[in-house]
Each structure stands twice: as C-alpha cells, then as structure tokens.
Amino acid sequence: MNLRSRWFAGPGFVCIAALATMLSAYSGASSEEGNSPVQPVAFRHTIHVDTLKMNCLYCHFSANKSFDPGLPAVGTCMGCHTVVATGKPEIQKLASYWNKKQPVPWIRIHKLPEYVHFPHMRHVNAGVTCQTCHGQIQNMKQVYQASSLNMGWCINCHIGQSNPPFRARYDCSSCHY
C-alpha cells in the first residue's frame, strides 16, 4: 500500500458505507412504521369512515380492480364539499385547491420498494380487509403507517399465521417479478 492509497482507504471506506446506507434507505428497504406526516389538508378518516360509515371504495375506487387502490380526484371530494361543511377551515383549504384547479399534493405514507409488487385487488377480492394492512384507519385522526410492510410481515400472512388465517403462495415470484 503506497502513501496515496493509505490516505484514501479510511475515508473511502466511510464514503462507500454512507452511500450504501443512503441507497438502502432510498430504496425503501427500511421500514417507516409509525410514519405519520402532516398532510396538506387534514382529511379525517374518522369522520368519513367511522361516523358517516362511507365505504372505502367510494374514494379508493380501484382497490378491488387494480394494483393501485386509487386516490380520489379532487372532484370526488368536491362532489359533497361544495355544500357540506363549507365553513370548516380544512374544507376551505380543499376548496382553494379546487378553485386554483390544482390537485392536492398528498404525502405518500405506504411505500413498498420498487422490486415488490402488491396487487391491491387480489388482496381485497380474497377478503383481506383494509385494516389488516393499514391498521384501524377509521380511528386515525392523522393516518400513520400501522404495519412494518417488511417481507417477514407479508410472509406471516401468506403462510396462514394471521387472524383470520389466509393462505397464499409465498414463492419469490409471488411478489418479486
């Protein structure tokens, strides 16, 4: 080892370690369990789901027919909120997005790494409730990530260790393809 390589070895190793850690975090391999960001509009699942008993599929309209659960268009919100609770400050925030013709920039909470496929429709159509993965969303004043969404957590359900028990294939290509 000559002078130059000796000088670079230490910091070089640290840089590589830092890069690896950042890449790992960026790829979503680490869990964000408990993550509860403040959303641009304080949408209350409590009021809509628990009090008003609205079906999840009213807003998340493609959860039973697509990989993507569907995010309600601002027009869907305004379908009711043109007349309902128009005086509330959060509704006024929503209305201002609508009037500016801008979509609400919601902050993503549940994120699987890019190398994992999660087809919502297959889970919903098999009878897995939204709460099984998303927690007691109807009681959340501010939505947080209730489950780890780690591979072990997925597998646990796929091998029938959940309550009620489900069974599904758990070979690699079920989720990684």
């Binding site: 975090a25 960026y26 979503g28 680490s30 964000e32 960001p37 995010l71 309600p72 268009a73 601002v74 027009g75 869907t76 609508w98 013709k101 801008q102 979509p103 609400v104 920039p105 919601w106 902050i107 993503r108 994120k111």
Partner: peptide, 12 residues
Amino acid sequence: EKVEKLIPYLVS
C-alpha cells in the same frame, strides 16, 4: 426517506 407525493386527478 425522500418525501413522495401522491398527486390525484382534479377531475377523474
């Protein structure tokens, strides 16, 4: 992690 946005349609 990097904050990721979910942008809905204005009118679907």
